[in-house]
Design a protein around this nucleic acid. Structure first.
Lengths: 323, 323
DNA sequence: CCGAGAAGATTAAACGATTAAGCAAATTCA
DNA sequence: TGAATTTGCTTAATCGTTTAATCTTCTCGG
């Protein structure tokens, strides 16, 4: 069906080995023959069999990507970045969902290995530890996680939010997180609290432990801003405030994290902090590839984030006419 | 490192072929030996080399999944379902993003084939046609698309929405879609307009062609409900209305499609139509696998959808205290 | 008691690439 | 000129399975 090395070899009266060498540029082949072979290969539309190559070399050209529950819209965006980075290097991406328990995560890891992944990029479930594996692994978590390979600078993100709110004169902030067990969220909260002005105060509320007060109570307690650790938390906050008839940002400001797809679309637009997913994907992949080439893994890295000021904190003149 | 057939064979004093047969249950091996071999394999932790098997059999146990821009939160959810269905069958999922042009989509398809996918599941870009391929393909699009394999019953979904709005006494509906070139959206709109009561009327507005009127103008034109062809469209509508101080659903109702992750979280909850992504994933995979076994592809199928009535159409008593 | 057929195993040839080793012929160097 | 080296290509082994073909040894019917 599709041409193989031998077809080219026969067509040109040379050996398979020479064809292989000519195409890979590895052995010793005269320049003239090399180009003739390459032309012929192109003419026949030759594409090497990944399967045969994988068997012989032990490299499949595929890396595995393990994500926690894909429900969080950030992960698809990350998957997209990883896929793009992999594609640019001619690699494929096998996905696995580590939904559920730590055991599910371990199984997902091993399944990807069985399926021939050369290396893994893992976004670990909260509070889990990865088993020792026989292939290179890159971990995308929080900078404070031991064994982390690369991550956004969540603390800096928190600091940016706090600074932004300070600039707009907010003095009393309600920080809303989901789960205390998430290092990412803890880092974000720490970034915020650490960058408050001397005249500012904040209270941290974990939704997992304690329900949110009613909008009225929030105002009554003197908070002028709600700072969520994720857009997915900020969105319900924003809509609840609006449904209760409060004016955002005039009466109360709202901020999130991650710049999810919907965050620019809501009205008013949600002020948030964007991670550089492209850089993170590149870094993770680079780490895996370095280890594959028996180079030492690069040191852990932290990627700067960007503040995206939008309508929920800034009273933009034409908020009303935004899409 | 990891044990291979030969290791087991040597350990038991039999040939590789016998071990292979015993494990696969294919050739003729005595029951006694068969179980002994299986025990030994389990003891050694034997896992067959996918690479070698792929080379020999031509099957890699991996299927390719091609999605349009993953920005739409529905696709990750679908990916999750496909991955789950594949995992249950011991298959892996290679992903590719067909972001951009039709050419990008074609390249993505071929790249997955090069990387050894046995078959493909494709959610095609709007208005594109797939090239002829040498492997089984399942297409997830709209029932009205030629060559479609399986899809949600988008017309039925539209009918459900229309009926729901009729039940709540709405007479004049503004249907809001993004792009007329999307078959899915056209089917949804057709479902809605086709199921209007005799005393009802609707206008269809495509955002790609025409901007949305201001909330005030919408009310002035007598509309009591906004029916979007997607939650991603409905969310901005909802928040714009709320930001303008309108009461949803008292002054105006809003509906969407797809039950995105955020749709249950906003306040009030967004009334929407959920696809049975699990069934769609199963159907798509089943079609690919049938074709792989040289069975004829099953006939195109349409999967029923479910209406999820929520706060944007129903004035739920405790809307205020929902998360 | 013999031939046919089945049962239970083995042998060896694939699958399609990579790559170490080998072998002429051409080139270099003294 | 002759030995040493380099160049250019071929041969053949290898990766770990699967599977068709074969080969013994039994079993059983007539």
């Amino acid at each position: 069906m599709t041409p193989k090395l031998e077809d080219i070899a026969r067509a040109m009266g040379v050996s398979k080995a020479t064809v292989s060498n000519a195409l890979s540029g590895k052995g010793r082949v005269s320049e003239a023959l090399k180009t003739r072979i390459r032309d012929e290969a192109a003419r026949l539309g030759y594409a090497p069999s990944v399967r045969a190559r994988a068997l012989r070399t032990g490299r499949s050209g595929v890396i595995g990507l393990v994500l926690p529950d894909i429900a969080n819209p950030l992960f698809p965006a990350l998957a997209q970045s990883i896929e793009a980075a992999a594609q640019a290097r001619g690699l494929g991406v096998l996905i696995a969902d580590s939904r559920g328990t730590r055991e599910a995560q371990d199984k997902a890891l091993r399944r990807l290995l069985r399926q021939g992944a050369d290396g893994l990029v893992v976004v670990p479930r909260r509070g889990t530890k990865l088993p020792e594996l026989t292939v290179p692994v890159a971990v995308i978590d929080a900078a404070s996680t031991p064994g982390n390979t690369i991550s956004a600078d969540h603390r800096q993100g928190g600091a940016l939010i706090a600074g932004h709110l300070r600039n707009f004169g907010h003095k009393n902030i309600l920080i809303v997180g989901q789960s205390r067990s998430s290092r990412v969220q803890r880092d974000r909260v720490a970034g915020m609290t650490g960058a408050l002005g001397n005249d500012m105060s904040a209270r941290v509320l974990w939704l997992e432990e304690e329900p949110l007060p009613s909008p009225r109570d929030i105002l009554a307690q003197g908070f002028t801003a709600l700072a969520a650790t994720s857009d997915l938390i900020a969105l319900p906050l924003l809509t609840r405030l609006q449904a209760a008839g409060l004016k955002v940002p005039q009466e109360i400001a709202v901020t999130g994290f991650d710049n999810h797809a919907f965050s620019a679309l809501v009205a008013p637009g949600l002020t948030t902090v964007a991670q550089d997913l492209g850089a993170i994907a590149e870094g993770a992949l680079a780490s895996v590839l370095a280890q594959l080439d028996a180079n030492p893994a690069p040191p852990p890295r932290t990627v700067p984030v960007t503040l995206l000021p939008r309508g929920t904190t800034i009273n933009h003149p034409n908020t009303e006419t935004c899409p």
